[in-house]
Amino acid sequence: MHISDGVLPISVTVGCYVASAALVAWSARRTRNEELPKLAVMTAAFFVASLVHVPFGPTSVHLIIPGLTGALLGPSAFLSIGLGLLLQSLLFQFGGLTALGANALMMGLPALACGWFFQRYKGRTQLRQAFVGGLAGAAGTALAAIILAILLVAGGEDFFGVAKIALLAHIPVIIVEGVVSAFTIGFLTRVKPALLQTSFLRQTKAAHG
């Protein structure tokens, strides 16, 4: 779920912009300059993955995948998510630019946290990696929902009810996201484990000379 323009108080909007600009700068610094074009191409892949809809009872939910992005890209994930959101706003008619900072924080912070969590606890066996990946996927969406609720509540007590509903609405997504992430990570451990090393950008670089 995206925050649309005009919802948050102007001070929160500007604060989120400043915070996410700082995080983007940090994230870009952690990514090597030559890798930036590659990161751009990968962002396209994550963007496409986030368009996948999964049926859930009578409705369908679409994946947000902050957890998976974090697990695969590590510190570069924040930059990638910011770029994805910018693209969505520029080209896919999604909302304006004032809420961009808040949305980047909402998706990017969970990605960083889950990426760190996944790398820290993934262990060695395939089963454990899939399990930790699933946890990271579910936690990514849960954290995003919590940040959304906090940002909404920043508008004052009038927004408590909306924040609660927004949190509840994310529960099905959290479940679906966790299971799908577990399967995706499990698939990658079997097919291309190199992708799950956060420093994989550097490794492939070395392989290509």
Binding site: A45, V180, F183, T184, F187, L188, V191
Partner: peptide, 21 residues
Amino acid sequence: TLRAVGNFIGMLFVRSFERTE
């Protein structure tokens, strides 16, 4: 279905990363 979608996304990533290079 969830397993199929998980594998689908995994395959998408594998192919895209190779393409990136």
